[in-house]
Simulated scan of single mutants.
Amino acid sequence: MELFRVDGKMDGKKLAVAIAVPLIGGAAAGWLANRNAQDKFKRLDKPGFAPPPATFPIVWNILYTTMGIARYRAGMSRTHKGMEESFPPYNIQLGLNFLWSFLFFKWRLRGTALIEMTILLGAIALTAERFYREDCTAGLLMVPYMGWVLYALALNASIWEKNDLE
């Protein structure tokens, strides 16, 4: 498939690792942060635009996969140019992504989670811009993620406001 080829080449191992890191990391962070938190979350007052709970794992698995593909494509492009394939903004946004679940669910620091998510959105935009410079498709693959985080930002803000700013 052309999506997995960069300059006509594909590296299955790099692709698998690039996809596995956000998928496994996201699953682990979600599991650790959400243990014993879902009952409390269900009792929160949520806005009318909140999706059904089953939406979140579906969307996040898709986004983590596209994020991994974007990382792979940008890294492959840099490798073919003889450059180091590291992207610190990508690693930062991924860490912030995982941290948010703990702030919001486990520690119930909704205001702090909102601030952190604002920083996360900036880190995603920076990552998308850096990826776009290396490979247009890689940068564009980050756009749905930015859109979802922007939506999640509004959801976080509304939940925080509706629940006495706890």
Rank of each mutant, 00 (worst) to 15 (best):
P88I: 14
E85R: 14
G68A: 06
Q93R: 05
S86Y: 13
W100L: 12
K40R: 15
R110A: 13
D39A: 09
Y145L: 08
S77V: 01
W107L: 02
A20L: 14
P144H: 04
N61P: 05
G12Y: 09
I58Q: 10
L94V: 01
L103H: 07
W160F: 13
L141F: 11
L165A: 10
M142V: 00
V17I: 15
N163A: 12
Y132V: 00
T118L: 13
I92D: 07
P52R: 07
A152Q: 03
Q38K: 15
A157G: 14
A113C: 08
R43C: 04
E2Y: 10
T127R: 13
F41M: 02
G25L: 06
R71Y: 15
F98G: 03
I124Q: 01
T137A: 13
D135T: 01
R133W: 05
A157S: 14
Q38L: 15
A123Q: 11
L140V: 07
K46F: 12
Y145N: 03
Y72D: 05
Y145F: 07
T55Y: 12
D11N: 15
Y64G: 06
L126K: 09
F98M: 09
Y132I: 01
M142L: 07
K42L: 11
L96V: 06
L32T: 01
P89S: 05
G147P: 07
Y90L: 12
S158Y: 04
W148D: 04
D7Y: 05
